[in-house]
Amino acid sequence: MYVAVVGNALHALRTRLSDPTNVLQSWDPTLVNPCTWFHVTCDSNNRVVRLDLGNANISGTLGPELGELKHLQYLELYRNNIGGRIPKELGNLEKLVSMDLYGNKFRGKIPKSFANLKSISDVSNNDLCGTIPVDGPFGIFPMDSFRNNRLNGPELKGLVPYDFGC
């Protein structure tokens, strides 16, 4: 059951992305196990733990299906042309320890559900706006992780939070 759910989630991601250099050509939904796909790493129990699509020349948007990757530890999507809003369902990935989303075209607010994550490496160089949540893990991250966005919040503006209202 898990393999089918994860395979469907990854296939849904593939359909949302434009892939001019065919880095996702091995993502064949007819293959039973997505652990055989390039850029997908699984643990010894065939659970997807890493998705590595950094600097892959892909564009498009992310969808809520990524929230189905319950064992995901590393999400690498940096330096692409992925846009739109970051799905709030990424905040459900409780095992996530590293997420690199920098250098894309994401816009909108950082989902409040990100406060559930243990680590978020970098969302710099996007078009995110709003207030950085002070609860959860955000207090331990250096502000460089958020640079070159339109963010605001107590960490950036003293103790007076301001919301740009994206």
Score class of each variant (00 low, 15 high):
111 P>G: 08
152 N>V: 00
77 L>Y: 06
35 C>L: 10
73 Q>E: 14
67 G>E: 10
38 F>V: 13
36 T>W: 09
73 Q>R: 12
56 A>Y: 07
63 G>H: 12
69 L>D: 09
106 F>S: 01
36 T>H: 14
63 G>W: 01
153 G>S: 03
96 L>M: 14
123 V>S: 01
65 E>N: 08
150 R>L: 11
29 P>R: 12
45 N>R: 13
64 P>K: 14
78 Y>R: 08
28 D>F: 13
59 S>G: 03
54 G>V: 04
154 P>Q: 13
134 V>E: 14
39 H>C: 09
38 F>R: 14
34 P>S: 09
30 T>A: 13
87 P>D: 07
48 V>S: 01
147 R>T: 02
86 I>E: 02
97 V>Y: 10
106 F>Y: 05
68 E>S: 13
130 G>R: 07
96 L>T: 06
142 P>M: 05
98 S>M: 10
70 K>E: 12
40 V>D: 04
102 Y>L: 01
88 K>I: 07
154 P>M: 04
120 I>R: 04
28 D>I: 11
68 E>M: 09
75 L>Y: 01
54 G>L: 01
112 K>E: 12
38 F>P: 09
54 G>P: 05
108 G>Q: 10
119 S>D: 14
48 V>Q: 02
75 L>G: 00
146 F>I: 08
81 N>F: 04
154 P>A: 07
123 V>T: 04
115 A>N: 03
89 E>G: 04
131 T>Q: 13
111 P>A: 02
153 G>Q: 00
73 Q>H: 03
117 L>A: 06
49 V>M: 06
94 E>Y: 09
92 N>G: 10
36 T>Q: 14
97 V>L: 08
31 L>G: 10
38 F>I: 11
149 N>H: 03
53 L>A: 03
77 L>E: 00
88 K>L: 09
34 P>L: 10
34 P>T: 08
139 G>C: 04
98 S>Q: 12
68 E>R: 14
124 S>F: 02
129 C>S: 11
56 A>M: 14
46 N>P: 01
82 I>F: 05
53 L>H: 05
35 C>P: 02
113 S>Y: 04
61 T>R: 07
46 N>W: 04
68 E>Y: 10
91 G>F: 00
156 L>Q: 12
145 S>D: 10
146 F>W: 06
93 L>N: 08
83 G>K: 04
82 I>C: 05
35 C>K: 06
119 S>C: 13
56 A>F: 11
115 A>S: 15
145 S>C: 06
75 L>Q: 00
107 R>M: 13
48 V>M: 07
29 P>A: 09
125 N>Y: 15
152 N>I: 05
128 L>D: 01
114 F>C: 06
45 N>G: 06
71 H>A: 15
145 S>Q: 07
132 I>R: 03
153 G>L: 03
62 L>C: 00
132 I>V: 12
87 P>Q: 08
133 P>N: 09
59 S>D: 00
105 K>M: 11
101 L>Q: 01
63 G>M: 10
94 E>H: 15
121 S>V: 12
153 G>V: 02
140 I>K: 15
99 M>V: 09
73 Q>A: 09
147 R>Y: 03
76 E>S: 09
71 H>L: 02
